[in-house]
Amino acid sequence: MTVNATPGTLTEQQTQVLLGPISPKRVRNLRGMSHLEAWDVRRQLIRVFGFDGFTIETQALELVAERESRTGERSRWTVVYRAQVRLTLKAVDGQPLTVFEDAAAGDAVNQPSLGDAHDLAMKTALSQALKRCAVNLGDQFGLSLYNDGSQGAVVLRSLAYMGAPVADSEDSEVRPEPTPATPTPVPQQAGTPPQADPPRPGAAPLAGPAERQAALDAMWEAARAVGFTDGLPVQFQQSFGHPIEQGTPAEFRQARELMVGGAAA
């Protein structure tokens, strides 16, 4: 195959791939929320730029929090890291093309091993930061998924490389990026202890703190196992009609079963 490129630029073939829609096979969908796996982002970087066509550098990796909780003689660990990553892209002749930097936080909740908790939290933070860098490359790296999960190309063309500008008639409708809902505080009467989880109209009685926390931790652990931590808050709100902070143990267990079942499928 002929590679047509000016030194220090993308080839025609690279440009065509980057401007095309993402393959549905690469999109993971759990209960209506779409995202890419971090390993697939690396695979696509290799496909488009080559094994030596990019570098991924960790600019910062910081421990944000480490918490131990004990039940009898057993310890469980919750760890949070923040990562900042730099993605550098190269042309086929080795000259640098561009650099992207971004940051993300990652957690590991209720882990029985402190080492595993640190490892999982670091890996999650680094993976999320890489995906945020790569999304600047457009639809092949998940940009369209921010538009309500669309798998159709949203960039279409770029005047830097080819063709006329995108016409209004062919442009995608822009929808807001999903964001977790913020629960409305419930006023407390004077002299009464604050409620961590205010009851909703028609909701079942509040469970004990230990039962609720165990179900919540299990749900987040399942979300991390399938790479769905970013999308879980929005999807939970859409599925149950209220934010995670107001969820019940039964809802947490149902959400976990859906994610575990989706991963098994």
Rank of each mutant, 00 (worst) to 15 (best):
T2S: 10
T2A: 12
V3A: 11
N4R: 13
T6Q: 14
T6F: 10
T6W: 09
L10P: 02
L10M: 07
L10C: 04
E12K: 13
Q13S: 15
T15R: 12
T15Y: 05
Q16E: 15
L18F: 06
P24W: 14
P24L: 14
R26M: 13
R28W: 15
R28T: 15
N29T: 15
N29K: 13
L30W: 15
E37K: 11
W39T: 05
R42W: 04
L45H: 04
G53H: 08
T55V: 14
E57L: 10
T58Q: 07
A60T: 02
L63S: 10
L63M: 14
E66F: 10
R70N: 07
T71Y: 06
T71Q: 10
T71S: 10
E73C: 03
R74V: 12
W77E: 08
W77C: 07
V79W: 07
Y81L: 10
R82K: 13
T88Q: 15
T88H: 11
K90V: 05
V92A: 11
G94S: 10
Q95F: 04
Q95Y: 06
T98Y: 05
V99E: 14
F100W: 12
E101F: 01
D107S: 15
Q111M: 13
S113N: 13
G115N: 14
D116Q: 15
H118S: 13
H118Q: 15
L120W: 08
M122W: 03
T124M: 09
S127N: 11
Q128G: 03
L130V: 02
R132T: 04
R132V: 04
V135R: 02
N136W: 07
N136D: 06
N136C: 09
G142E: 08
S144I: 02
S144A: 11
L145H: 01
L145K: 02
L145I: 03
L145G: 02
N147R: 00
D148P: 00
S150E: 01
G152Y: 00
G152A: 05
G152N: 03
A153K: 01
V154E: 00
V155D: 00
R157F: 00
L159H: 00
G163L: 00
G163K: 00
G163E: 00
S169D: 03
E170F: 01
V174Q: 01
R175I: 00
P176V: 01
P176D: 05
P178E: 05
T179D: 07
T182I: 09
Q188D: 09
Q188H: 04
A190F: 07
G191I: 03
P194S: 06
Q195M: 11
Q195E: 14
D197P: 03
D197G: 04
P198C: 07
P201Y: 12
P201R: 10
A204R: 11
L206H: 12
G208E: 15
A210T: 15
A210H: 14
A214R: 14
L216C: 09
A218T: 05
E221I: 12
E221N: 13
E221M: 12
A222Y: 04
G227V: 02
L232S: 09
P233V: 08
V234C: 09
V234W: 11
Q235F: 05
Q238R: 13
Q238W: 07
S239G: 01
G241Q: 01
H242E: 05
P243N: 08
E245T: 10
Q246I: 07
T248C: 11
A250K: 09
A250D: 14
F252A: 11
Q254E: 10
A255C: 12
L258G: 09
G261R: 14
A264I: 10
A264T: 13
